[in-house]
Design a protein around this nucleic acid. Structure first.
Lengths: 214, 214
DNA sequence: CAAAAATATTAGGAATACCTAAATCTTTAT
DNA sequence: ATAAAGATTTAGGTATTCCTAATATTTTTG
């Protein structure tokens, strides 16, 4: 069983490997705020679990499984951190802190849905979300929808946190079905139907909402 | 130091106290999926920490501090659960599961901001959010409903995952309209009407379902 | 190329949280 | 009222994860 604690070690090892090529006991210890002896002990355990390759006195590297696990956690951290900043209004420092805890408990599904909401082009290859994460996503802006057809909201495009929050508060949440009722000429508001009610939305806000193609 | 684990115990004790007046070792053990012996051990620790009042063989109750802490966690659970459903599109069961983990790591600030997004409509005193939260959605327990009047299910109160899942499976989902058809004497089941059908529900299950205070 | 310095590991413990089995206390039923 | 049943606690262990001190290995440097 891989505990949150072990996940933390894995993540540190990933970061160190990325930055330095190898992860050394002392460096891990420093980053984890733990004694070197504790690190050695944990390395043995992780090696036994097949997550790292560990040679005494020689530092460690991740096995493919270990790498996959670490990447997954790292992705969730990124997603959570952005979400906390963009949607829950936290500053970078606080968001990072909280993301360090969230990364261990966030379900794949929730992470994926957070991704849809923040929709920024920042995290590239994301193991959690697969291909439909944050990069080159297809989708149609709500304001370009033809009248009538029902679509599902795919994601909200990060532009301005305040607007995102407003949209969510109104009910524009990924996964929901929506259809365009009518469009005024020029740049007036557009009328949508979602659930039981009609909603008017300004063009500029509507342009932040992307729905599934087709 | 109060770990997430201890917080879980505190929360169980709160729920049992609310439902039954006292929290007994065996009940706690059953809800936590842990041996009675482990519970006894933990109760000693919690008592030592001043969070509960514990008299051997006599069950426990929360001290003011313990109560405050348990309430705070409970509030965060409710907020996280609703947020996961309303914003991240999770179904009740999955949202509940994940909220059980989130409740321990969610910062006050994030919880408050979640409230702002989801809780604009329903309000009252929540220890985390102060005045503007969703605590007051807690209207009336289903088993206290007068015969006849139609109400909407507001939420299901966390007590035990199995029961919650059972209720959901039967169809007790927030938002649905329900009315009390008849009540047997004593502690027998209660008959409700929901949609096209009548449903019998035990008192203890019914007490977990809250409907809007008209 | 050794000795000093830096790094890493082993040894021996501590705290938390869990378990089973046995003992003890309380409740229930005859 | 008392013995059986039920609930709770104690005793004795296990697994994780952390610690300090002592030991071993590697690297650096005079």
């Amino acid at each position: 069983m891989v505990t949150g604690n072990r996940e933390d070690y894995l993540l540190r090892i990933l970061r160190l490997t990325e930055a330095e090529g190898v992860a050394k006991t002392t460096d891990i210890a420093a980053l984890m705020n733990v004694s070197a002896a504790s690190v050695t002990e944990m390395l043995r355990v992780l090696a036994q679990d097949g997550l790292i390759i560990y040679k005494k006195y020689r530092g460690v590297s991740l096995t493919p499984e270990g790498m996959a696990m670490a990447k997954r956690i790292s992705d969730k951290h990124q997603i959570a951190e952005r979400f906390l900043m963009d949607v829950l209004n936290k500053d970078q420092g606080a968001a990072h802190e909280e993301a360090c805890k969230m990364e261990h408990i966030l379900s794949d599904e929730s992470a994926k849905n957070m991704c849809r909401i923040i929709g920024a082009a920042e995290v590239t290859e994301c193991d959690v979300c697969g291909s439909d994460c944050l990069k080159n996503r297809s989708g149609v802006q709500l304001n370009r929808l033809p009248v009538g057809g029902e679509r599902k909201i795919s994601y909200l495009k990060c532009d301005d946190h305040e607007k995102i929050r407003k949209l969510i508060a109104i009910g524009f949440v990924p996964g929901r079905s929506i259809s365009l009722v009518s469009r005024t000429t020029n740049n007036g508001p557009i009328i949508f139907r979602m659930g039981e009610s009609n909603i008017a939305l300004d063009q500029d806000l509507a342009s932040l909402v992307f729905v599934d193609t087709e």
